[in-house]
Design a protein around this nucleic acid. Structure first.
Lengths: 187, 187
DNA sequence: GATAATTTGTGACCTATATCACATCAATGC
DNA sequence: GCATTGATGTGATATAGGTCACAAATTATC
């Protein structure tokens, strides 16, 4: 399990065994059941999670009760409510498990300590955040410039693994279309 | 002019005069005319720009020729094509000036050198990137959960300064709606 | 200051997608 | 193994917003 985290980091910065032990010592391990919430709207957001097993989603619920999926996270992905976590605010998002899951999670304090002790980790987080930015910008352009079918096709190309693990209903919610419309596309 | 950059950085990390001189030595100054392109689709993206004067926009043009505005940038904002700049790829976006503009710009190499020489600048860039992520996620949720009118009202609240500097046509393009629809909302 | 270019408003019409309503089928929990 | 809950498909209908077309008003440019 640790290996997934190590490989994820080493894709960007090489680590000695000692360094990786140091990294690991700042994380904790969490086990969660399908349907379990790990972040809830209006509550604090103490951790970022690195998923080593399972599948989660983050989503926003508007006043009328409709929900919109911001992100899925499976093995080798990071997930949290950024706004809550980085600004020490209460969550505007929910995160729950679509499958039983295991994560390595870290507090903001520990992340800062880790970066202070091991400079290259700050570079790692910066690289990750940058890649995240690029992905989000592309998603915005996709929402603005593509129709439902094009967005669905793009989703399949980007995340072929997810298609078989996630009900269409949720994919629709991620793409910003109704489940009926997605159903009518599906062939 | 330098002061704008210094204040921008010092909102996040304090700097001595010497440190700021070091920072500044890694930037160059650019002056651009209204309508001038500083990044063009299919071309390299050598710089990130920090705007000290004027107003720019970044936008994507799809195959059918329609254009979609990803970002405006006025004084105290950063702008580039992230994908091109950070991955050393050719631009997928265009950036041009809506008004005569002046920027401090920096290459990726210089940014990395600067971070190596002055650790706290890496923290600064990480904070900026994080704030950017949060803003982008909110924009995605806004595109998915709000209708045209709600998005327009939100834009006015978020960027009251921009309303008077930017034609409605362009605001429509930023919001992902047609200029006619925005016109019909406007009162 | 005249000419050109851009921006804005508005009508008529069209279409992609949402919504509502059922029916079926699959999965999950006790 | 039965009962509940969730997933999917599909028809009928409604609607927000797009597109096209033109005119008026405003702003740039030489």
């Amino acid at each position: 399990m640790e290996e997934i985290l190590r490989q994820q980091i080493e894709k960007i910065v090489p680590l000695t065994d000692d360094e990786f032990r140091l990294v690991l010592s700042h994380f904790s391990v969490g086990n969660y059941k399908k349907h379990q919430y790990i972040v809830q709207q209006e509550n604090p957001v103490p951790y970022v999670h690195f998923v080593v097993k399972g599948l989660l989603k983050s989503f926003y619920i508007d006043k009328s009760g409709k929900s919109y999926i911001l992100q899925f996270a499976m093995e080798d992905w990071w997930i949290t409510d950024n706004q809550g976590f980085y600004n020490n605010q209460n969550a505007t998002l929910n995160i729950d498990c679509l499958e039983d899951a295991q994560t390595y999670y870290i507090t903001l304090d520990n992340r800062e300590k880790l970066c202070a002790e091991l400079q290259k980790m700050e570079f790692f987080f910066l690289q990750k955040m940058t890649a995240g930015n690029i992905a989000l910008q592309n998603r915005i352009l996709s929402l603005m410039s593509k129709n439902s079918e094009e967005r669905y096709i793009q989703f399949i190309q980007l995340y072929p693994d997810l298609i078989h693990r996630i009900p269409k209903t949720l994919i629709a919610s991620y793409l910003g279309i109704s489940r009926e419309t997605l159903s009518r596309l599906s062939h």
